[in-house]
Design a protein around this nucleic acid. Structure first.
Lengths: 402, 402
DNA sequence: GTGTTTTGTTCAATGATGAAACTAATACGC
DNA sequence: GCGTATTAGTTTCATCATTGAACAAAACAC
């Protein structure tokens, strides 16, 4: 069973499907044959299987094909009947989204709330109710997987080891979460890592603008994700990305983690508010508003955050050679305010800046980015190996309902 | 040409060969069939091709096989007629080694010298002469590739952008290096990244003790390499691993790179010597000797280096989740002296240390580690895709000489 | 309306693996 | 010493997916 004829078919199914999803414009069977360096005969057979499985769909002939001589091809697109459930528990909200293979959000349920210091079990029951409703909102989508984004360190077996801002520790999330209809299990992942996925991908399987970047996330704390060559760097245990606890200044203020001078003490939402002379619960957008309006203390706080970010991110860039930094989470609000100092610091402290200057960008506004990314990841699992899925429902009709 | 029958064969050849090299004890055809989840018939066919190409060899029947009922199998081992040339230019030496697939060093030529501020062309000519002699030392090895390790930032096209300690800038190394007999081109790579390879691999294709670690290298400067899941993290342009310029303390001493408080200013060989009140060119082993002997300034210098390493490496571990740190280069000499402070700092500053404490190890003494790793990398290229090699020499006999 | 062009389909040939039968070589038991 | 059990390696045939070429379909262009 190393790689036999069946294995070849599985690989080529994935290749054709990936190529189809990656196409900026709906491809025909002939286009896919070209893209995957195979013959039209093979591409057509593989496409037929993918159509039967609902992974691809034949689009109307009008779908923006360039006109010209010759028989017009049949434009193909991702299937709209297959989707995944993305879940998110954050300090500010609970969310559930259903996303299909085209990238369309077929259902979105969000409940804003302050979940700092909450108890896991009730929150997870609430999340399950929300997920139920989202699934009911999209009855004609066959959901092939579910994943939950959590702002903390997650172990391989689905146990949340620690989410400092939620105040959760050693929570067996996968077990506690009530069963969802038609879904075997809910996978669990880190919020920043999952929120970075919609930056890497414009839609499931379709490359986004960047293949290599650091994404900074978070609200109170600062989480991060490093994406290289389109894949998140997860580390030995999947705990990579704790940019918030990189030391900015060993003589700096004490951090709740036991260390001193962590980035979080400079650019975390509470530290930022405190430095601006405001109550710790002040939203970052308010600090940014005051800094823009000319408030001296607010401006100083923002500068301090920018300098801290510069030092911590210089370490990341020096060690990982990532040319792009995307500011997400509450750091979005600071955006242009921190850019000058941040880019200047990077230019000075990054060794390779002489050849390539790191670029700082602001992530698009998207409160449920992590849930969206969670859904994408589940869809990518399907796309990466469609073989078993197709075998599992041979000759099965398109699902008629949830 | 996506994946056809020929592609299957290529993949399975690589699978069988990789499995054979990875085996701790010489495997038989039947063992390989088991290891690659294929049938004995297929494994035997693939092995025969690999034998014909010299990639595998049949060992004597006495090669440590467990005895028992049944027909004894034919133990197989890596071919001893195929090898690669590993080259190294360091501030302290020039080296050329020929390593075969078994991992045996068939030739080793080293010339110690101080190459700080040297001129590239003469050094590269000298390296070529050394390589010639090494190749002549191993006439019965067919050399399939060559790679040169350089202590600096290397671009994809083989240009050395900057090697601060050598004092080289923008050197088109691949062009300047005189041609070597029977070798099309010499690839170029970063010294730390290549020196880390023999830590990942006990022999070509044979896993070493660690799959995930940070390797610290260097003499004057400090280079680093991060290995995750057995593969070095190279970054967007291949410039990852500049641990030496991670900021330890933004208020620290100025660094030649233009920044302040870089790790190099704490744990670099010159900084270490200076902090110990010794001439900058003092070898690190001398500083270590004095510290061990009780010299107060030397001990302070070592402590300062250990603290700096702790802060910089905490950043690396927080961001990348690498559980093992291997001290190579001149940091080997400090070894046990820095371990207590280093491990303590890591324990305090690494967020995940509560679950997994990072381990600090000292690399084995091996002055030509980078050259060795360079040879391994070339051999791995062959192992990863033996198909073209086998086709290129169909029915060719074992080479009778260089 | 006819010719050209490109798409999609059909069909025999190719090539590698899988499965099973067969031969080879050793240990074990009597 | 000899037969049996057991495992290794080889041979042969069937299977399966791709390839390549020929064929049918559907549009544009003159």
């Amino acid at each position: 069973m190393a790689v036999d004829a069946g294995g070849v078919r599985a690989v080529n199914l994935a290749r054709v499907l990936s190529a189809a999803l990656a196409c900026p414009t709906p491809p025909t069977r002939a286009d896919l044959a070209l893209a995957t360096a195979t013959t039209r005969a093979t591409a057509a057979r593989l496409v037929d299987d993918l159509l039967a499985g609902g992974l691809l769909e034949e689009l109307g002939a009008q779908a923006g094909r360039p006109r010209g001589p010759g028989r017009p091809g049949t434009p193909l697109g991702p299937g709209s009947t297959l989707g995944a459930l993305g879940l998110q528990v954050d300090v500010d909200r609970v969310a559930a989204v259903v996303v299909d293979l085209t990238g369309a959000v077929r259902a979105e349920r969000v409940e804003d709330d302050d979940l700092r210091g909450s108890r896991p079990a009730p929150v997870l029951r609430r999340l399950a109710r929300l997920a139920h409703r989202a699934l009911a909102d999209a009855p004609d989508v066959l959901v092939v997987g579910a994943r939950l984004a959590l702002p903390g360190i997650v172990a391989d077996d689905g146990v949340l080891l620690r989410a400092p801002n939620l105040g959760w520790s050693d929570v067996p999330v996968a077990e506690l979460l009530p069963d969802l209809p038609g879904l075997a299990a809910v996978a669990v992942g880190n919020e920043a890592e999952l929120a970075a996925v919609p930056i890497s991908f414009a839609a499931p399987g379709r490359p986004g603008t960047h293949r290599d970047f650091v994404y900074l996330s978070g609200s109170t704390g600062i989480g991060g994700a490093v994406v290289l060559d389109g894949h998140p760097v997860r580390g030995r245990h999947g705990w990579a990305g704790e940019v918030g606890h990189v030391t900015v200044d060993p003589a700096g203020p004490a951090c709740a983690c036991g260390s001193t001078g962590c980035l979080e003490q400079y650019a975390g939402a509470r530290a930022l508010a405190a430095a601006a002379g405001l109550p710790e619960t002040t939203r970052t957008s308010e600090v940014a508003r005051r800094a823009t309006a000319g408030d001296a203390r607010a401006r100083e706080a923002v500068e301090r955050a920018a300098a801290g970010l510069g030092i911590a991110l210089s370490a990341v860039v020096n060690v990982l050679d990532v040319p792009v930094i995307v500011l997400g989470g509450h750091l979005r609000e600071l955006g242009e305010l921190v850019r000058p100092t941040l880019e200047r610091t990077l230019g000075r402290r990054v060794l390779s800046a002489a050849w390539v200057t790191p670029v700082v960008e602001v992530a698009p506004e998207r409160p449920v980015a992590a849930a969206l990314g969670a859904a994408y990841v589940e869809l990518h699992r399907l796309v990466a190996d469609p073989g078993p899925w197709l075998e599992g429902r041979t000759a099965a009709a398109v699902p008629s309902g949830g």
